Simulated scan of single mutants.
Amino acid sequence: MIELDDLDRKLLRLLKQDARQSASALGRRVGLSQPAAWRRIRRLEDAGVIAGQMLRLDPEKLGFGVTVFLGVKLSTRARVSLEDFERAVTAIPEVQRVEHMLGLYDYRLRVIARDLADFERVLRRRIMTLPGVGNVEANVLLTEERLPGPI
């Protein structure tokens, strides 16, 4: 594990807000020269602290107005491997996130759809036909108050 100081943490917070910032701009904001800021960022990347950059799209502006969280319990009778289920579920484009859980459900899925009718189609034709699916519980997202931020 890499040791992080206050400057590293400040850089990470700034990069989390906007990963497109230049090393020069970041350095100015934390009191470092451009080369020093660049070296710190490179060190964080090399250590795996910064695992990449991600483009975040607004699903609503792309026509996906419904987000549903599904709890999926695999059937014990189906004798399907976790890898088979994961491979099949990650191939569904409406499934934005797959989380293997410990608890009541084996998996939690984040699913986007154009509307409830579209979600029902995805649920019936794609998700319920996956290998090993047993019980499913759906929770419709009403609002999202906080987006993921720095740790």
Rank of each mutant, 00 (worst) to 15 (best):
residue 111 V to N: 06
residue 81 S to V: 07
residue 49 V to W: 03
residue 84 D to C: 06
residue 79 R to G: 06
residue 27 G to P: 04
residue 94 E to N: 12
residue 97 R to W: 00
residue 93 P to V: 03
residue 42 R to G: 03
residue 69 F to Q: 14
residue 16 K to Y: 01
residue 115 D to N: 15
residue 81 S to G: 10
residue 23 A to F: 04
residue 95 V to I: 09
residue 106 D to K: 01
residue 33 S to D: 02
residue 147 L to Y: 02
residue 48 G to A: 11
residue 99 E to Q: 01
residue 33 S to K: 00
residue 15 L to E: 05
residue 111 V to R: 11
residue 29 R to E: 07
residue 9 R to L: 15
residue 61 K to N: 09
residue 43 R to T: 10
residue 117 A to L: 07
residue 60 E to D: 14
residue 26 L to G: 03
residue 56 R to M: 13
residue 21 Q to L: 13
residue 33 S to T: 12
residue 109 L to Q: 05
residue 31 G to A: 07
residue 31 G to L: 01
residue 132 G to Q: 15
residue 104 L to C: 03
residue 124 R to S: 09
residue 78 A to R: 11
residue 44 L to V: 09
residue 128 M to F: 02
residue 140 V to N: 08
residue 77 R to S: 08
residue 146 R to G: 00
residue 19 A to E: 00
residue 32 L to A: 09
residue 140 V to H: 10
residue 46 D to I: 01
residue 11 L to C: 10
residue 66 V to E: 13
residue 62 L to Q: 12
residue 5 D to I: 09
residue 126 R to N: 11
residue 139 N to F: 15
residue 53 Q to G: 15
residue 101 M to L: 15
residue 105 Y to A: 07
residue 38 W to M: 00
residue 45 E to I: 14
residue 82 L to F: 04
residue 89 V to P: 10
residue 117 A to W: 03
residue 21 Q to H: 03
residue 44 L to E: 05
residue 91 A to L: 07
residue 62 L to R: 11
residue 102 L to C: 02
residue 24 S to R: 02
residue 48 G to Y: 03
residue 151 I to Q: 06
residue 23 A to E: 00
residue 135 N to R: 15
residue 113 A to V: 11
residue 16 K to I: 00
residue 141 L to D: 14
residue 101 M to V: 12
residue 70 L to W: 06
residue 48 G to D: 10
residue 71 G to H: 09
residue 126 R to T: 07
residue 35 P to A: 02
residue 151 I to K: 03
residue 43 R to A: 13
residue 137 E to C: 10
residue 149 G to F: 00
residue 101 M to N: 08
residue 95 V to D: 05
residue 30 V to Q: 01
residue 87 R to F: 04
residue 97 R to G: 05
residue 97 R to S: 07
residue 78 A to C: 14
residue 144 E to M: 13
residue 126 R to C: 08
residue 126 R to A: 12
residue 80 V to D: 03
residue 135 N to E: 14
residue 27 G to L: 03
residue 92 I to V: 09
residue 151 I to T: 05
residue 1 M to D: 08
residue 117 A to P: 03
residue 14 L to F: 06
residue 29 R to V: 02
residue 45 E to S: 06
residue 48 G to E: 10
residue 1 M to K: 12
residue 2 I to M: 12
residue 24 S to C: 00
residue 115 D to I: 09
residue 48 G to N: 10
residue 142 L to H: 10
residue 23 A to D: 10
residue 51 A to Y: 01
residue 30 V to Y: 03
residue 143 T to N: 14
residue 66 V to C: 04
residue 23 A to Y: 04
residue 54 M to T: 13
residue 49 V to L: 07
residue 58 D to V: 14
residue 134 G to V: 14
residue 113 A to D: 06
residue 91 A to F: 02
